[in-house]
Amino acid sequence: MSTLEIKDLHVSVSTEDGAKEILKGVTLTIKDGETHAIMGPNGSGKSTLAYSIAGHPKYDVTDGTVTLDGEDVLAMSVDERARAGLFLAMQYPVEVPGVSVANFLRTAKTAIDGEAPKLRTWVKDVNAAMGENGLDASFSQRSVNEGFSGGEKKRHEIAQLNLLQPKVAVLDETDSGLDIDALKVVSEGVNRFSAGGDKGVLLITHYTRILRYIKPDFVHVFVNGRIAEQGGPELADQLEAEGYDKYVNAAV
């Protein structure tokens, strides 16, 4: 059983004109087995929420709490958060020249499990996770994300999700820039992850398209650093038809 609980989260970034508040009090609870979709227009603070949960140093939490099963996530370093069971699939995965995917995955798995994976099964697991996400075995020998296409980077993120098996996955616009085939592959990967019913998913997206393949239990509309409305899957259909205008106009 795991629960990610975000309470009244306020987050600022420093700009030339001083601190600028991006998140203005976000409250959200993700229990295991639940998939939450956060939808909102550009600049509403969706990605800031994702990176704040993961602990990116650029974001300064000024108020509020984030806990995973009662543990204070905000007191943890970036890597401690991952070892505690959080995973962030990034919108723009970072290239790490000279570090092979195989070495990276093994190092990450070892860090998260606290012991090296069993050699016999691990190579098989890696090849399976890569293959299921449409990446052939040669990717293991390539440098992390270097020279990957946009779609390959996203599929590599989901392959990591499948291998590392966190408690809660935050997917930051994993669907953006994907063609329909890649979108299906990625969605299947997320669905495999959550199929056991004991994983939490926070799916951040600008578009409703991915919600045809990943069924959310809850949909939150994110506008101007806050949740403006929440509901079930039907809210996504409504957004598909009406767009964000009424929320954006109400927030101004």
Binding site: A54, G55, H56, P57, S77, V78, D79, R81, A82, R83, F87, L88, M90, P93, V94, V96, F104, T107, A108, A111, I112, V144, Q160, L164
Partner: peptide, 10 residues
Amino acid sequence: FYLRSRGISE
């Protein structure tokens, strides 16, 4: 950040 977000220590 990317490496650490996968649990790898600093």
